[in-house]
Amino acid sequence: MTETVLGWWGVPLAILGGAIRASTPYLFVSLGECLTEKSGRTNLGQEGNLVLGAMTAYAVSYLSGSPWLGVLAAGATGMLLGLLHAWVCQFKKVNDIAVGIALMLFGIGVAFFFGKPYIQPTAPHLPAIGFGNWSDIPQVRAALEINVLFLFGLLLAPLLSWVLSSTRWGLMLRTVGDSSDAADALGFSVNGVRMVATMIGGFLAGVGGAFLSLYYPGSWNEGLSSGQGLIAVALVVFARWDPMRCLYAALLFGGAGALGPALQSVGFSSGYYLFNAAPYVLTLILMIATCSPQRTLTGVPGELSITK
């Protein structure tokens, strides 16, 4: 590409910007879900956590004037739903995936029920840091305008990775996720560990929702998430239960979402429905390419119902 076709430079720039802007919800939900799944439970209710978190954050930020209070409240609701999930799932013969779907319905229902009065008002937003201020090009500045939550996410991925691999708590979590019998024998509380992991997972998903409503796109409405929480759960499988890979997958997904509009903005405008589906097809292809029934996948928690 030569410098004369400046317009096309907008495409990689938009993908970079999109990766930074749109990846945060995927990142938080998938990191949270990664932790939950490492403990041996799948929580498809993350979509409900995300939506309820978005609504709660917006409502609290609007009522209190403090977006950070909104973020905390969103995390707290996610934690509550996570607790409910863990509590229901601890009973015998209860299927965790089904409970997740139920909680998704419930979470979305509660969010829509109480969210009606907050669709119209404008709530205070989360602040952003201008990392591109060195540049004279406004587009670069805008693309590098980075929200603090994204930075938290960036730090959280290696931190989680370290906790899982190198701390006592991480080892306990992985043991519980790999074999509840072994964990029992070691005297770990299987349900307790899973409950904590699901609650933290729910907290993170709630925070992801806060990002949606308080930063980007930055407004509460009923179509806000449209399945991002579900896709983030899919990303965990795709990332092989590795927090660092969750980060890459989230960035990839955020960037891929920006591809369609960016291509149209430089005049390439046919087949946008197919472009919009590109991230899903990509995930599918990568999953098919990397899965195999013969060998056990590295990193997969043995107790996980979605891999049995």
């Binding site: 015998k92 409970v99 909680l103 319905l105 979470g107 979305i108 229902g109 829509f112 029920f113």
Partner: peptide
């Protein structure tokens, strides 16, 4: 609001799953 039905369905769903035990 229209979402009332979601809440009811969610509750029924959770309780029925719980009753599996």
């Amino acid at each position: 609001p229209d979402a009332t039905v979601f809440i009811l369905q969610g509750i029924i769903f959770i309780v029925i799953l719980l009753s599996e035990t």
